[in-house]
Design a protein around this nucleic acid. Structure first.
Lengths: 202, 202
DNA sequence: CGATTTTTTGATTTCAATCAATGTTGGTGG
DNA sequence: CCACCAACATTGATTGAAATCAAAAAATCG
């Protein structure tokens, strides 16, 4: 990336805050980032997860309307958006990123508006396994119950209960803290997608 | 718009469907459009409202993932996105539109994930009064209860009950079918924004 | 190892969904 | 013009999924 500099952010640290002037664009090189909004009374909603290759926001000026925080130790390329858009190589990447982010957000809206707690968590695990890319059938979850709940529009207790139920019913195996596995996945490793539907089956 | 043609769509008619190849971009000239997704079992979520000046989608190729339908009689400019992006006047407009749409979607996510039914409806009325621009303090609502519910992630009964309660409590006045007014608005017409907070006050 | 954070689990409540009529409105044709 | 019909909206009774309240248990960290 021309004219970019690299920064490191530790787990849990803020990258930018709502209200800050949008001065730079950020691209994730390694690690994972959560983007979120906070209501006046403290209610929090995580908007998006960003992994390697993703841009965090697309604002070239004005105030940012959301917060960004490192979920794990994260390396970011920081650069000036206005000048980068002059680069003919950068523009298609920028457009594709915004398009992809809009598609993610549309899915997120549909999930929050119309899906049950269990469906949301299943969708989320599928999304995480793609997005933060672990081996197929395995899920690497560097998030607390509260963070998952804030992404899904639920409470941490509800998230905890659903995990507990799936593990109790043998639909999900916890191999380590923050690491889960879908049992019997070896049998149907047809594609890359995790068969999260198995989590919901009656 | 260079190389564009105008089309008319009647209220309730489909503009495009999910699964269609993204061949053209659409800009609303007059009227209003809803964008929505439908789950396999028929649950529907309205993603966005588009009014005059708005682009409906931003996909230059690939399959569209959502539906677009005219809410009122609508006039649309249809044009080729790929060639329009070559136009140096068009690019900034396109970028600003995607940015604005992302901001709307983030607010929508936060609303669906973290707000109560009443807060959602109040937010929605505020959004509609800006977006489909009626006079300040007045709200023009060309949508059925079901459509409002599908935007807010609620049922039509819940939406109906909240309207009924606000009208009963004198927080909202129905001047005509689909037309509401905030009473006492003349006193605080400080800015352009409707004081929806009055709807929620204890 | 102690202290703090995070997670689990249980009991109870609550908001909105669901189920079920009834009432309105607007368009159409007699 | 009015009667009829089909959408659309309201209202009530009841249920239900997830939130809230409240401890205990487990994991993480210095």
């Amino acid at each position: 990336m021309t004219g970019s500099k690299l920064i490191h952010v530790q787990r849990g640290n803020e990258i930018y805050a709502a209200g800050e002037e949008a001065a730079a664009l950020y691209k994730v090189c390694s690690g994972a980032v959560i983007l979120f909004m906070i209501l006046e009374d403290g209610r929090r909603q995580i908007i998006d997860l960003a992994g390697p290759g993703d841009l965090l926001h697309f604002d070239l000026d004005g105030e940012l309307d959301h917060f960004a925080e490192a979920l794990t130790e994260t390396e970011l390329a920081v650069f000036d958006g206005a000048s980068a858009l002059g680069d003919p190589d950068f523009l298609p990447f920028f457009l594709e990123q915004t398009r992809a982010r809009l598609a993610m957000d549309r899915r997120h809206i549909t999930m929050l508006g119309r899906k049950t707690a269990q469906e949301r968590l299943a969708d989320f695990l599928e999304c995480v396994s793609e997005c933060l890319g672990s081996a197929p059938g395995e899920i690497d979850l560097p998030m607390t119950r509260q963070q998952i709940a804030d992404y899904l529009g639920l409470t941490l207790e509800t998230v905890s209960r659903i995990f507990a139920r799936w593990v109790r019913e043998g639909r999900l195996v916890q191999v380590a803290p923050g690491q889960y596995e879908l049992p019997g996945y070896g049998l149907n490793r047809v594609g890359a997608a995790i068969k999260v539907s198995a989590l919901l089956a009656a």
